[in-house]
Write a protein that binds this DNA or RNA. Sequence first.
DNA 1: CGCAGCGTTGATATGGATCAACAGAAGTGG
DNA 2: CCACTTCTGTTGATCCATATCAACGCTGCG
Lengths: 230, 230
Amino acid sequence: MKLFRPMSPEEIRFIKGFKVGEKYMRAGTDVVEAGTSTHHVYTLYSGWALRYDTLPDGRKQILSILLPGDMIGLQAAMFDEAQHSVQALTDVTLCVFLRDRFFELYRRQPKLGYDVTWLAAHSEAIVDANLLSVGRRTAIERMAYLILSLHDRLDQLGLVTEGGMRFPLTQQQIGDALGLSIVHTNKTLKKLYQRQAIVIRDRHLTILDRPALERIARYDENAHAPRPLL
Amino acid sequence: MKLFRPMSPEEIRFIKGFKVGEKYMRAGTDVVEAGTSTHHVYTLYSGWALRYDTLPDGRKQILSILLPGDMIGLQAAMFDEAQHSVQALTDVTLCVFLRDRFFELYRRQPKLGYDVTWLAAHSEAIVDANLLSVGRRTAIERMAYLILSLHDRLDQLGLVTEGGMRFPLTQQQIGDALGLSIVHTNKTLKKLYQRQAIVIRDRHLTILDRPALERIARYDENAHAPRPLL
DNA sequence: CGCAGCGTTGATATGGATCAACAGAAGTGG
DNA sequence: CCACTTCTGTTGATCCATATCAACGCTGCG
């Protein structure tokens, strides 16, 4: 399956000119902070990031997990003020674009503007799926779904190897993504170990029994269209 | 706050040419069906619609509630296949656009392409908020949040009057939006009646005690104020 | 008249939260 | 080097928010 749509040399040249630099950030640092505005829009070049929001009393919900190729800060760019935060989960490399020049992209390279809309729609589809999970799946179903969906996204990026996939999430973060307490997250994970469905060791996860996971999660593996590269 | 950005006569002319018609649909009918593809993209001109997804065993989650001005079918247009369904909640009027001509809009009227991205980002922000609610708020908090957010969206559209706002959702649908059972939805609503926070009569809802609702929901616009330096 | 959809309510069951404690690993400062 | 803290994971006990079950009433409608 093709991952990125092919681009014309002109488009590639335009993107190169549009990009103002790269930024390297350490795990745990904030890329975008809710309630603030920024002059930059980013593309996640390598590493993982977390999009999350919190209630005033500190309850936290991870909205989606960002992987290489995902955009960061589009909402902040569109609405002047970020409504949620983005945090580097691992060390991270970002491609940096200037927000002020963002509209230029639509004017000069309409296809790329279209691609941005595609990415926004794709990002929403992921949140949609998470909402279905958190709203209607049980804890173990959510867990299985999370693992499968991450696995398949990473697989499309060529980031799944023999030894499985990188899995840098703490159990606290898994809980915050699934709307569960940390204790219950731990106990739910344990069930998946005991069923020999997965192994986590050394911040790496291997799926041992994919059919079992799919059954648990009610996972419909649906084809994903090739994404634009930005 | 201005609701719509001003458009040039040329843009308006373009949109009129781009639009291929209007469509009226009765409450309860499907506008978009998950797993199918369509040649149309819509704008909701009047009425309410529900975006929802289901698990194979029938559990249902409403992803967002669509109000006048919202787009319908953007994901379906971008990915060839709709990943969720959209149903008319009330009788509905749609503006119909041709999917095949969608890209033309980016080429000929980049500002409008930009606007589509804006709408997509806006739509995602709403789902984000719902996910935070369903993942981390209690039943009564979710209910209060739902009411406040709908109220404020309708207010911006000028659809809130003396008598409050139209409220065509059944309790089943409220439950499906909040990730609750119908019984618990009923009992939670009752609590809001008893606290004299709201009244629902005749498919219309009036907010009696907004501060109470805001307190319950942690509907706090300052949630993301700059935090103390440590 | 009977039926279907919607709302209501009490009784009971349970999934997951909360509380409490502990263990290992990794850093940190003396 | 050790003492100490912090972060992460683990586990058992108990509690509670919400699900499920089971009725019943109302309304509109064919």
